[in-house]
Amino acid sequence: MKSEAIVSDTTQIEARSVGKKYGKFHALRDVSLGVSEGEFLSLLGPSGSGKTTFLMMLGGYEPVTSGQLRLDGQDMTTWSANQRGFGMVFQGYALFPHLTVAENIAFPLKVQKRSKAQIVDRVAQMVEMVGLDGHADKKPKALSGGQQQRVALARALAYEPKVLLLDEPFSALDKNLRGQMQEELRRLHRELGTTFVFVTHDQEEALALSSRVAIFNQGALQQIGTPAEVYERPANRFTAEFLGDINILSLAGLSDAPIELPTNAAAFDTLAIRPEHMRLATDTDANQLPATVRDRVYLGSKSRLLLETRAGEELMLYFDNGPGVPPPAAGTELRVAWNTPDSFAI
Protein backbone atom coordinates (compact mmCIF):
# COMPACT_ATOMS: atom_id res chain seq x y z
CA MET A 1 0.00 0.00 0.00
CA LYS A 2 2.76 2.43 0.90
CA SER A 3 4.21 2.42 -2.60
CA GLU A 4 0.91 3.45 -4.15
CA ALA A 5 0.55 7.13 -4.93
CA ILE A 6 -2.08 8.56 -2.62
CA VAL A 7 -2.30 12.00 -4.17
CA SER A 8 -3.80 12.68 -7.56
CA ASP A 9 -5.30 15.68 -9.34
CA THR A 10 -8.70 15.10 -7.79
CA THR A 11 -7.48 14.56 -4.24
CA GLN A 12 -9.55 16.66 -1.88
CA ILE A 13 -8.59 15.36 1.53
CA GLU A 14 -5.23 13.87 2.30
CA ALA A 15 -4.05 12.21 5.48
CA ARG A 16 -0.27 12.03 5.96
CA SER A 17 0.85 9.55 8.63
CA VAL A 18 -2.00 10.62 10.86
CA GLY A 19 -1.96 9.20 14.38
CA LYS A 20 -3.89 9.50 17.61
CA LYS A 21 -2.64 8.72 21.10
CA TYR A 22 -4.65 8.73 24.29
CA GLY A 23 -1.95 8.80 26.93
CA LYS A 24 0.21 5.84 25.97
CA PHE A 25 -2.50 4.10 23.99
CA HIS A 26 -2.30 4.34 20.21
CA ALA A 27 -5.89 4.61 18.99
CA LEU A 28 -4.62 5.13 15.48
CA ARG A 29 -1.16 5.04 13.96
CA ASP A 30 0.38 6.20 10.75
CA VAL A 31 -2.69 6.41 8.50
CA SER A 32 -2.01 7.80 5.05
CA LEU A 33 -4.73 8.01 2.47
CA GLY A 34 -6.29 10.35 -0.04
CA VAL A 35 -9.96 11.03 -0.66
CA SER A 36 -10.94 12.25 -4.11
CA GLU A 37 -13.55 14.85 -4.76
CA GLY A 38 -17.01 13.33 -5.14
CA GLU A 39 -15.86 9.97 -3.84
CA PHE A 40 -17.87 7.69 -1.56
CA LEU A 41 -15.30 6.27 0.84
CA SER A 42 -16.24 3.79 3.55
CA LEU A 43 -14.14 3.33 6.65
CA LEU A 44 -14.71 -0.28 7.62
CA GLY A 45 -13.50 -2.25 10.59
CA PRO A 46 -14.51 -3.98 13.81
CA SER A 47 -15.24 -1.83 16.87
CA GLY A 48 -12.10 -0.37 18.38
CA SER A 49 -10.33 -0.44 15.03
CA GLY A 50 -9.88 3.34 14.93
CA LYS A 51 -12.29 4.06 12.09
CA THR A 52 -14.52 6.40 14.08
CA THR A 53 -11.50 8.12 15.62
CA PHE A 54 -10.21 8.76 12.11
CA LEU A 55 -13.57 10.18 11.01
CA MET A 56 -13.70 12.46 14.05
CA MET A 57 -10.20 13.69 13.24
CA LEU A 58 -11.21 14.35 9.63
CA GLY A 59 -14.16 16.37 10.86
CA GLY A 60 -12.12 18.34 13.37
CA TYR A 61 -13.89 16.90 16.41
CA GLU A 62 -10.80 15.10 17.74
CA PRO A 63 -7.35 16.68 17.77
CA VAL A 64 -4.67 14.94 15.72
CA THR A 65 -1.64 13.93 17.79
CA SER A 66 0.74 13.21 14.91
CA GLY A 67 0.84 13.61 11.15
CA GLN A 68 -1.01 16.06 8.97
CA LEU A 69 -4.42 16.47 7.38
CA ARG A 70 -4.74 18.47 4.18
CA LEU A 71 -7.79 19.87 2.41
CA ASP A 72 -7.39 20.96 -1.20
CA GLY A 73 -3.63 21.15 -0.69
CA GLN A 74 -3.83 23.28 2.47
CA ASP A 75 -2.83 22.07 5.91
CA MET A 76 -6.05 21.78 7.91
CA THR A 77 -4.65 19.78 10.83
CA THR A 78 -5.35 22.46 13.41
CA TRP A 79 -8.59 23.82 11.93
CA SER A 80 -11.74 23.58 14.03
CA ALA A 81 -14.71 21.56 12.83
CA ASN A 82 -16.42 24.78 11.84
CA GLN A 83 -13.45 26.03 9.83
CA ARG A 84 -13.38 22.79 7.86
CA GLY A 85 -17.08 23.21 7.17
CA PHE A 86 -17.85 19.55 6.61
CA GLY A 87 -21.34 18.16 7.13
CA MET A 88 -21.56 15.57 9.86
CA VAL A 89 -24.14 12.91 10.64
CA PHE A 90 -23.46 11.66 14.16
CA GLN A 91 -24.19 8.23 15.50
CA GLY A 92 -27.57 8.55 17.21
CA TYR A 93 -28.26 11.54 14.92
CA ALA A 94 -27.66 14.27 17.56
CA LEU A 95 -30.78 16.17 16.53
CA PHE A 96 -31.93 19.12 18.63
CA PRO A 97 -34.78 17.51 20.58
CA HIS A 98 -36.54 20.80 21.36
CA LEU A 99 -36.62 22.01 17.75
CA THR A 100 -38.89 20.92 14.92
CA VAL A 101 -37.59 19.25 11.78
CA ALA A 102 -37.57 22.58 9.95
CA GLU A 103 -35.83 24.35 12.86
CA ASN A 104 -33.23 21.59 13.06
CA ILE A 105 -32.40 21.99 9.38
CA ALA A 106 -32.45 25.79 9.69
CA PHE A 107 -30.04 25.85 12.66
CA PRO A 108 -26.75 25.76 10.73
CA LEU A 109 -28.16 28.25 8.22
CA LYS A 110 -29.08 30.66 11.01
CA VAL A 111 -25.57 30.27 12.43
CA GLN A 112 -24.25 31.28 9.01
CA LYS A 113 -26.55 34.34 9.19
CA ARG A 114 -28.30 33.65 5.93
CA SER A 115 -31.34 35.77 5.13
CA LYS A 116 -34.76 34.63 6.37
CA ALA A 117 -36.06 34.10 2.83
CA GLN A 118 -33.00 32.05 1.90
CA ILE A 119 -33.38 29.88 4.99
CA VAL A 120 -37.07 29.23 4.35
CA ASP A 121 -36.34 28.25 0.74
CA ARG A 122 -33.42 26.03 1.59
CA VAL A 123 -35.24 24.26 4.42
CA ALA A 124 -38.22 23.53 2.15
CA GLN A 125 -35.82 22.21 -0.49
CA MET A 126 -34.02 19.95 1.99
CA VAL A 127 -37.24 18.63 3.50
CA GLU A 128 -38.36 17.64 0.03
CA MET A 129 -35.00 16.19 -0.93
CA VAL A 130 -34.98 13.73 1.97
CA GLY A 131 -38.68 12.93 1.56
CA LEU A 132 -40.01 14.43 4.78
CA ASP A 133 -42.83 16.52 3.30
CA GLY A 134 -45.57 16.97 5.86
CA HIS A 135 -43.24 16.35 8.80
CA ALA A 136 -41.52 19.75 8.88
CA ASP A 137 -43.30 20.91 12.03
CA LYS A 138 -42.81 17.75 14.05
CA LYS A 139 -40.29 17.31 16.83
CA PRO A 140 -37.69 14.54 16.42
CA LYS A 141 -39.36 12.41 19.10
CA ALA A 142 -42.51 12.16 16.97
CA LEU A 143 -40.51 10.63 14.10
CA SER A 144 -39.38 7.08 13.40
CA GLY A 145 -35.69 6.17 13.40
CA GLY A 146 -35.50 6.32 9.63
CA GLN A 147 -37.16 9.72 9.56
CA GLN A 148 -34.79 11.06 12.23
CA GLN A 149 -31.95 9.78 10.08
CA ARG A 150 -33.30 11.81 7.18
CA VAL A 151 -33.48 14.94 9.30
CA ALA A 152 -29.85 14.42 10.33
CA LEU A 153 -28.88 14.07 6.66
CA ALA A 154 -30.86 17.14 5.66
CA ARG A 155 -29.34 19.20 8.48
CA ALA A 156 -25.81 18.10 7.56
CA LEU A 157 -26.34 18.84 3.88
CA ALA A 158 -28.31 22.08 4.29
CA TYR A 159 -25.30 24.38 3.99
CA GLU A 160 -23.90 22.54 0.96
CA PRO A 161 -20.73 21.21 2.55
CA LYS A 162 -17.96 19.97 0.27
CA VAL A 163 -17.65 16.83 2.35
CA LEU A 164 -20.21 14.85 4.30
CA LEU A 165 -19.02 12.63 7.16
CA LEU A 166 -21.29 9.89 8.47
CA ASP A 167 -20.66 7.92 11.66
CA GLU A 168 -22.47 4.57 11.54
CA PRO A 169 -25.67 6.30 10.45
CA PHE A 170 -27.71 3.15 10.00
CA SER A 171 -26.62 1.12 13.00
CA ALA A 172 -29.86 1.82 14.91
CA LEU A 173 -32.20 0.90 12.05
CA ASP A 174 -33.77 -2.47 11.36
CA LYS A 175 -32.71 -4.41 8.31
CA ASN A 176 -35.47 -3.36 5.90
CA LEU A 177 -35.12 0.28 6.75
CA ARG A 178 -31.37 -0.01 6.42
CA GLY A 179 -31.66 -1.17 2.83
CA GLN A 180 -34.03 1.66 2.07
CA MET A 181 -31.78 4.29 3.67
CA GLN A 182 -28.74 2.88 1.85
CA GLU A 183 -30.55 3.39 -1.44
CA GLU A 184 -31.45 6.89 -0.35
CA LEU A 185 -27.85 7.67 0.50
CA ARG A 186 -26.64 6.38 -2.88
CA ARG A 187 -29.21 8.57 -4.59
CA LEU A 188 -28.16 11.66 -2.58
CA HIS A 189 -24.52 10.99 -3.38
CA ARG A 190 -25.29 10.66 -7.09
CA GLU A 191 -27.42 13.81 -7.18
CA LEU A 192 -25.16 16.07 -5.10
CA GLY A 193 -21.69 14.94 -6.10
CA THR A 194 -20.54 15.73 -2.55
CA THR A 195 -17.67 13.69 -1.12
CA PHE A 196 -19.03 11.15 1.36
CA VAL A 197 -16.90 9.53 4.05
CA PHE A 198 -18.84 6.86 5.82
CA VAL A 199 -17.99 4.79 8.90
CA THR A 200 -19.52 1.35 9.27
CA HIS A 201 -18.78 -2.03 10.78
CA ASP A 202 -21.13 -3.73 8.30
CA GLN A 203 -19.05 -5.12 5.44
CA GLU A 204 -22.00 -5.66 3.11
CA GLU A 205 -23.03 -2.05 3.58
CA ALA A 206 -19.50 -0.87 2.82
CA LEU A 207 -19.17 -3.01 -0.30
CA ALA A 208 -22.61 -2.05 -1.59
CA LEU A 209 -22.36 1.71 -1.09
CA SER A 210 -18.83 2.88 -1.62
CA SER A 211 -16.58 3.70 -4.49
CA ARG A 212 -13.66 2.75 -2.23
CA VAL A 213 -13.34 0.98 1.09
CA ALA A 214 -10.64 1.63 3.70
CA ILE A 215 -10.25 -1.27 6.10
CA PHE A 216 -9.07 -0.59 9.63
CA ASN A 217 -7.95 -2.95 12.33
CA GLN A 218 -6.25 -2.33 15.68
CA GLY A 219 -5.63 1.31 14.91
CA ALA A 220 -4.01 0.77 11.54
CA LEU A 221 -5.15 1.07 7.95
CA GLN A 222 -5.04 -2.44 6.50
CA GLN A 223 -6.01 -1.80 2.91
CA ILE A 224 -7.79 0.74 0.75
CA GLY A 225 -9.30 0.01 -2.65
CA THR A 226 -12.51 -0.48 -4.61
CA PRO A 227 -14.93 -3.00 -3.12
CA ALA A 228 -13.89 -5.55 -5.78
CA GLU A 229 -10.19 -4.99 -5.06
CA VAL A 230 -10.43 -5.44 -1.33
CA TYR A 231 -12.76 -8.42 -1.62
CA GLU A 232 -11.00 -10.26 -4.41
CA ARG A 233 -7.42 -9.29 -3.64
CA PRO A 234 -7.20 -8.77 0.11
CA ALA A 235 -3.78 -7.48 1.14
CA ASN A 236 -3.54 -9.59 4.26
CA ARG A 237 -5.20 -12.28 6.25
CA PHE A 238 -7.24 -9.87 8.36
CA THR A 239 -8.85 -8.26 5.34
CA ALA A 240 -9.44 -11.64 3.72
CA GLU A 241 -11.20 -13.01 6.79
CA PHE A 242 -13.02 -9.82 7.71
CA LEU A 243 -14.73 -9.49 4.33
CA GLY A 244 -17.01 -12.42 3.69
CA ASP A 245 -16.03 -16.08 4.08
CA ILE A 246 -12.75 -17.48 2.98
CA ASN A 247 -11.03 -20.86 2.75
CA ILE A 248 -7.46 -20.76 3.98
CA LEU A 249 -5.01 -23.56 3.19
CA SER A 250 -1.49 -23.81 4.47
CA LEU A 251 0.91 -24.09 1.52
CA ALA A 252 3.00 -26.65 3.39
CA GLY A 253 0.07 -29.09 3.40
CA LEU A 254 -0.37 -28.73 -0.36
CA SER A 255 3.19 -29.45 -1.47
CA ASP A 256 2.43 -32.87 -2.96
CA ALA A 257 -0.99 -32.05 -4.44
CA PRO A 258 -1.28 -31.31 -8.21
CA ILE A 259 -1.97 -27.62 -7.69
CA GLU A 260 -0.90 -24.59 -9.64
CA LEU A 261 -0.06 -21.78 -7.26
CA PRO A 262 -0.62 -18.08 -7.94
CA THR A 263 2.50 -16.21 -9.00
CA ASN A 264 3.12 -14.46 -5.67
CA ALA A 265 2.96 -17.69 -3.65
CA ALA A 266 6.69 -17.93 -3.03
CA ALA A 267 6.63 -15.02 -0.57
CA PHE A 268 3.75 -16.32 1.55
CA ASP A 269 2.72 -19.41 3.41
CA THR A 270 -1.05 -19.64 2.95
CA LEU A 271 -3.40 -19.94 0.01
CA ALA A 272 -6.86 -18.33 0.13
CA ILE A 273 -9.89 -19.07 -2.01
CA ARG A 274 -13.41 -17.61 -1.60
CA PRO A 275 -16.06 -20.35 -1.12
CA GLU A 276 -17.96 -19.14 -4.16
CA HIS A 277 -14.84 -19.70 -6.29
CA MET A 278 -14.58 -23.33 -5.21
CA ARG A 279 -16.58 -26.16 -6.73
CA LEU A 280 -16.74 -29.96 -6.78
CA ALA A 281 -14.06 -31.17 -9.18
CA THR A 282 -14.64 -32.87 -12.53
CA ASP A 283 -11.85 -34.92 -14.15
CA THR A 284 -10.74 -32.07 -16.41
CA ASP A 285 -10.08 -29.57 -13.60
CA ALA A 286 -6.48 -28.54 -13.05
CA ASN A 287 -6.42 -27.83 -9.33
CA GLN A 288 -7.87 -30.73 -7.40
CA LEU A 289 -7.81 -31.39 -3.70
CA PRO A 290 -9.33 -34.42 -2.01
CA ALA A 291 -11.63 -33.72 0.95
CA THR A 292 -14.35 -35.33 3.07
CA VAL A 293 -17.80 -33.85 3.64
CA ARG A 294 -18.26 -33.15 7.36
CA ASP A 295 -21.56 -31.33 7.33
CA ARG A 296 -24.21 -30.13 4.94
CA VAL A 297 -26.52 -27.15 5.54
CA TYR A 298 -29.57 -26.80 3.35
CA LEU A 299 -30.16 -23.13 2.42
CA GLY A 300 -32.91 -23.40 -0.20
CA SER A 301 -31.43 -22.70 -3.61
CA LYS A 302 -28.01 -23.74 -2.31
CA SER A 303 -26.46 -26.04 0.22
CA ARG A 304 -23.42 -25.09 2.23
CA LEU A 305 -20.89 -27.93 2.48
CA LEU A 306 -18.32 -28.05 5.25
CA LEU A 307 -15.34 -30.17 4.19
CA GLU A 308 -12.11 -31.33 5.71
CA THR A 309 -8.91 -31.84 3.75
CA ARG A 310 -6.49 -34.69 4.37
CA ALA A 311 -4.27 -32.20 6.23
CA GLY A 312 -7.22 -31.56 8.55
CA GLU A 313 -8.02 -28.04 7.34
CA GLU A 314 -11.63 -26.90 7.02
CA LEU A 315 -13.11 -25.78 3.73
CA MET A 316 -16.47 -24.39 2.82
CA LEU A 317 -18.23 -24.26 -0.52
CA TYR A 318 -21.68 -23.72 -1.92
CA PHE A 319 -23.46 -26.42 -3.88
CA ASP A 320 -26.30 -25.39 -6.22
CA ASN A 321 -29.37 -27.46 -5.44
CA GLY A 322 -30.18 -28.04 -9.13
CA PRO A 323 -32.72 -30.59 -10.43
CA GLY A 324 -31.75 -34.20 -10.12
CA VAL A 325 -28.39 -33.90 -8.43
CA PRO A 326 -28.60 -34.27 -4.64
CA PRO A 327 -25.88 -32.60 -2.61
CA PRO A 328 -23.26 -35.01 -1.27
CA ALA A 329 -24.05 -36.30 2.20
CA ALA A 330 -21.79 -36.14 5.25
CA GLY A 331 -18.97 -38.70 5.02
CA THR A 332 -18.70 -38.56 1.22
CA GLU A 333 -15.13 -38.45 -0.11
CA LEU A 334 -14.74 -36.06 -3.01
CA ARG A 335 -12.41 -33.59 -4.65
CA VAL A 336 -12.72 -29.83 -4.83
CA ALA A 337 -11.35 -27.60 -7.58
CA TRP A 338 -10.79 -23.91 -8.37
CA ASN A 339 -9.26 -21.78 -11.06
CA THR A 340 -5.76 -20.56 -10.27
CA PRO A 341 -6.57 -16.83 -10.89
CA ASP A 342 -9.26 -16.99 -8.20
CA SER A 343 -6.78 -18.13 -5.56
CA PHE A 344 -4.30 -15.86 -3.87
CA ALA A 345 -1.44 -16.27 -1.46
CA ILE A 346 -1.48 -14.22 1.72
Binding site: N82, G85, F86, M88, F90, L95, F96, H98, F107, V111
Partner: peptide, 29 residues
Protein backbone atom coordinates in the same frame (compact mmCIF):
# COMPACT_ATOMS: atom_id res chain seq x y z
CA UNK B 1 -28.17 16.16 27.61
CA UNK B 2 -26.61 14.22 24.74
CA UNK B 3 -23.06 15.50 24.41
CA UNK B 4 -23.14 14.82 20.67
CA UNK B 5 -25.90 17.39 20.21
CA UNK B 6 -23.61 20.05 21.66
CA UNK B 7 -20.70 18.80 19.55
CA UNK B 8 -22.94 18.96 16.49
CA UNK B 9 -23.94 22.56 17.23
CA UNK B 10 -20.29 23.46 17.79
CA UNK B 11 -19.32 21.81 14.51
CA UNK B 12 -21.90 23.91 12.69
CA UNK B 13 -20.09 26.99 13.93
CA UNK B 14 -22.49 28.03 16.69
CA UNK B 15 -20.82 30.25 19.32
CA UNK B 16 -20.71 29.09 22.94
CA UNK B 17 -23.31 31.72 23.79
CA UNK B 18 -25.68 30.47 21.09
CA UNK B 19 -25.13 26.85 22.09
CA UNK B 20 -26.01 27.74 25.68
CA UNK B 21 -29.12 29.81 24.98
CA UNK B 22 -30.51 27.96 22.00
CA UNK B 23 -29.46 24.38 22.68
CA UNK B 24 -28.36 23.63 26.24
CA UNK B 25 -30.89 25.80 28.10
CA UNK B 26 -33.95 24.56 26.16
CA UNK B 27 -32.71 20.98 26.48
CA UNK B 28 -32.70 21.38 30.28
CA UNK B 29 -36.11 23.10 30.39
Amino acid sequence: VDERVLTAADGMGATRLRIFWQVFLPMTA
